[in-house]
Nucleic acid binder design. Structure first.
Length: 796
DNA sequence: TGAGCGGGTTTTTTT
DNA sequence: AACCCGCTCA
């Protein structure tokens, strides 16, 4: 195999058989080819949106393997989501025509878990540690804040949680924070105590939070050079995607991995002599990073744009390759994107271009309310679908998760198949967290958080008083909560409670004992049967509990699926996988549904048609970003990311009024709309129209009109001289009324009256049972699809 | 112990 | 509007 020296070489290296090399470079432009074939210590690929970076990265790995420059086990590729990782692995394997066993392609977090599971014993953890998600961390912090009465100095749970997270991303720990803390500030002293206790509790629980996964791995490498050396020797080629969104901890991890291992750390058993250079030491791994500073949207969780901006300075002998040709979007979409992002000063100018052609104009729409806007989106999706675009090729983006409500209500009513990516996730549901907590108790008996969660679920008469008694016993004897349950008979509790605790702890211990040799679905099945968890839900009077029972059964199906994909997988692997699923991982490409997601989740994805909703001040840019330095610029990048997801059709929509916290407030068009050349937008209903209705709307909207010019895109003639906008143009003032029509039946030709849309005629009826859908041509509001059972309609 | 009620708070984005 | 919390009463 070719040795990798520290000297940059542009490789004409025998990239395997010629035809393999040709295949790897097929269809690539010169810059892309160079990005695949360049060899050297450090490569920065500045890849604009849609410039084919994933393809380049994939082929670069394939090229390393095909030319035998690297074994699969010497490659570490970091992607942003697990889904991207799986896709990349499949594509590499397809390119090199073999299973690339031993190749690490994963997210930062997954890679760190893998390392920590192997090495946790070095520093006081065991390999079966629990991973606390943000909700778990919050729960723990909440307890601590309460115990310490930190409210008293104005510390809230979220303030503490955010600050701890931020510090960990900066690789600060309790000691380093304490060294520079101001001890005259009671708030800071209290925070320090919270931080200290939180850290101690995690350690005791044998648990890491999300931020620890990164920070503790860095700590591990720094504190144990021998451990670091294992990975420094092993990984010869490190590739990082979405580098603009790395935070300091991630940056440091990469730094550690691309160091030469210290010579004394090389054990005598080190047989990997092939990679030794002339001086007898192991050269650092080569590093490839791909990113686009215009798409940096995670500063709020510590991403530091300087990591990419200063990459060349950080890593000497860096080769930089720019990919500017866009293969995704039409020129109109790119022009809009370019002109929006050009308003961010302090960036290297770069302009995306395409040879695809101008394409359709961007469509703009201003709704009366969020529901109205949603109705527009639904109608357009319906029209696009009829024109031949599959549901799965369309997506609706929004800034905040709360915007899903109106969209969902309308989509359900319009009988559109949709799916929300992310948001309130499956694994965040209480019943799923309960069952997962049982599994955590089985895997990691030291974890008291999980144990407390399930202690009295389902109800078995173990209340707070009993729990406190157990905890007191645990504290006194300095044992775990689990251990104190084992000696429950010594506590002098009532016979009923004692019996319940005995039963629970015996069950947990029994399952802990067999977890290593039991299939996950079987373990889960046994658990559910013995705890009667599902039975308890089914017996409940709350009608929602039936749905919860179904969710738990769904989890069982997930476990079976996991076992199918990982025949050797054990409980610990299952828990790891579940803990690290990201929103974008849930995406099922084959599903015939419209995808709804936040702009953040949309990163890295692309669709034929994209709807960006809520393009309003205080939403995009979000109100909360105004105070942050660099906030508005980051929001602009977010908008840019959204725009550049679209291949052919882009819709921008907003509403004049938006309900928040239960009451309605007036919304203003986003400043970013003015940054798009007016001739690129075809306003179906512009903010100008929306405010010229006269009469009842708040003054602020009328005032706003003067400041907004939508150029030639307005319908001809000043609004005042047009016959007053007739009521029917506002016929779609959609309310959120829903009703149950029982078994109302409609047939083609029936006349109906709709609360929002007025009168209309049924032109088609499809579907069956409760899913019967009427296609209605309204006299004034256009054509709509309605779910007959719930639409606010009556037959005339 | 646990159901039910009233009052306060909430929404930025995520691994 | 929806959720969480703490309090009261059975």
């Amino acid at each position: 195999m070719t040795s990798v020296s520290g000297v940059p070489v542009t490789v004409p290296a025998s990239a395997g058989p010629g035809d393999t090399r040709d295949r790897l470079l097929e269809g690539l432009n010169p810059q892309q080819r160079e990005a695949v074939e360049y060899r050297g210590p450090a490569l920065l690929i500045v890849a604009g949106a849609g410039s084919g970076k994933t393809s380049v990265l994939t082929r670069r790995i394939a090229s390393l393997l095909a030319s035998r420059e690297a074994w699969p086990s010497q490659i570490l590729a970091i992607t942003f989501t697990n889904k991207a990782a799986n896709e990349m692995r499949e594509r590499v394997e397809a390119l090199v025509g073999q299973k690339a066993e031993g190749m690490w392609i994963s997210t930062f977090h997954s890679a760190c878990v893998r390392i920590l599971r192997r090495e946790a014993e070095h520093f006081g953890f065991t390999r079966n540690f629990t991973i606390y998600d943000s909700a778990d961390s919050r729960a723990l912090i909440k307890r601590i804040v309460k115990d310490l009465d930190a409210d008293a100095v104005g510390l809230t749970v979220s303030a503490v949680a955010n600050k701890i997270s931020k510090l960990k991303n900066e690789l600060s720990d309790v000691e380093s924070y304490a060294r520079q803390a101001n001890f005259n500030d009671p708030n800071e002293v209290m925070f320090l105590e919270c931080f200290r206790q939180y850290t101690r509790e995690l350690q005791r629980a044998n648990a890491f939070d999300f931020d620890d996964l990164l920070a503790q791995t860095v700590y591990l490498f720094r504190a144990f050079p021998g451990v670091a050396a294992i990975y420094q020797r092993r990984f010869r080629h490190i590739l990082v995607d979405e580098y603009q969104d790395t935070n300091h901890a991630q940056y440091s991890l990469i730094r550690e991995l691309t160091r030469s291992p210290e010579p004394e750390a090389l054990g005598p058993g080190d047989t990997n002599v092939r990679i030794l250079d002339d001086r007898g030491s192991v050269p650092p791994a080569s590093l490839t990073v791909v990113g686009d500073s215009d798409q940096s949207i995670y500063a709020f969780r510590g991403a530091d744009i300087r990591n990419i901006v200063e990459f060349e300075r950080d890593f000497p002998n860096t080769k930089v390759i720019l990919l500017e040709q866009n293969y995704r979007s039409t020129q109109n979409i790119l022009d809009a994107a370019n002109s929006v992002i050009s308003n961010n000063f302090d960036r290297k100018d770069k302009k995306l271009f395409t040879t695809i052609g101008a394409g359709e104009k961007i469509v703009g729409y201003t709704g009366y309310s969020g529901h109205d806007e949603a109705q527009f989106v639904a109608d357009e999706i319906n029209a696009l679908h009829k024109s031949g675009i599959a549901y799965k090729d369309m997506a609706v983006f929004y800034r905040t998760n709360s915007q899903t409500r109106a969209l969902e209500e309308i989509f359900i009513r319009s009988a559109l198949p949709y799916r929300i990516v992310g948001g309130t996730k499956f694994y965040e549901r209480a019943e799923i967290k309960d069952v997962m907590a049982y599994l955590v108790c089985i895997a990691n008996p030291a974890d008291p958080l999980a144990l407390r969660r399930i202690m009295n679920v389902p109800k078995r008469g173990i209340g707070p008083a009993t729990e406190a008694a157990l905890q007191a016993h645990a504290d006194r004897d300095e044992v775990s909560l689990r251990e104190s349950m084992r000696s429950v008979e010594l506590l002098g509790l009532g016979p009923k409670v004692t019996g319940a605790i005995r039963e629970l702890v015996d069950l947990l211990d029994e399952l802990t004992g067999i977890q290593e040799k039991t299939m996950v679905p079987n373990l889960l099945q046994t658990l559910l049967e013995r705890t009667k968890y599902i039975d308890a839900l089914r017996a409940s009077r709350d009608p929602q509990d039936e749905a919860r029972a179904e969710n738990v059964e769904e989890l069982l199906a997930v476990a079976k699926e996991f076992q199918r994909n990982n025949p050797g997988g054990r409980l610990l692997d299952f828990l790891t996988e579940v803990a690290l699923v990201a929103a974008a991982d849930e995406l099922d490409d084959s599903s015939g549904t419209v995808s709804l997601m936040t702009l953040h989740t949309a990163k890295g994805l692309e669709y034929e048609a994209v709807f960006i909703t809520g393009v309003e001040e205080d939403l995009l840019p979000h109100r909360m970003s105004a105070g942050e330095p660099g906030g508005p610029a980051e929001e602009r990048r977010l908008f840019y990311v959204g725009i550049t997801r679209a291949r052919k059709r882009l819709y921008l929509s907003l509403a004049m009024t938006r309900s928040m916290f239960g009451d309605v407030s007036v919304a203003m068009p986003s400043r970013y709309l003015q940054e798009i050349p007016p001739e690129l937008i075809d306003w179906r209903q512009s903010p100008g129209d929306a405010t010229s209705r006269g009469g009842t709307q708040p003054r602020a909207l009328n005032a706003r009109r003067e400041k907004f010019s939508y150029g030639g895109s307005l319908p001809p003639g000043p609004s005042a001289t047009r016959p007053a906008i007739r009521q029917h143009e506002w016929a779609n003032k959609v309310t959120n009324q829903v009703r149950d029509n029982g078994d109302l039946t409609l047939e083609k030709g029936d006349r109906i009256r709709h609360v929002d849309f007025g009168d209309g005629r049924v032109v088609d009826v499809t579907g069956a049972g409760t899913k019967r859908i009427a296609e209605v041509q309204f006299d004034t509001a256009g054509r709509k699809r309605l779910l007959i059972k719930i639409a606010p309609i009556e037959k005339l």
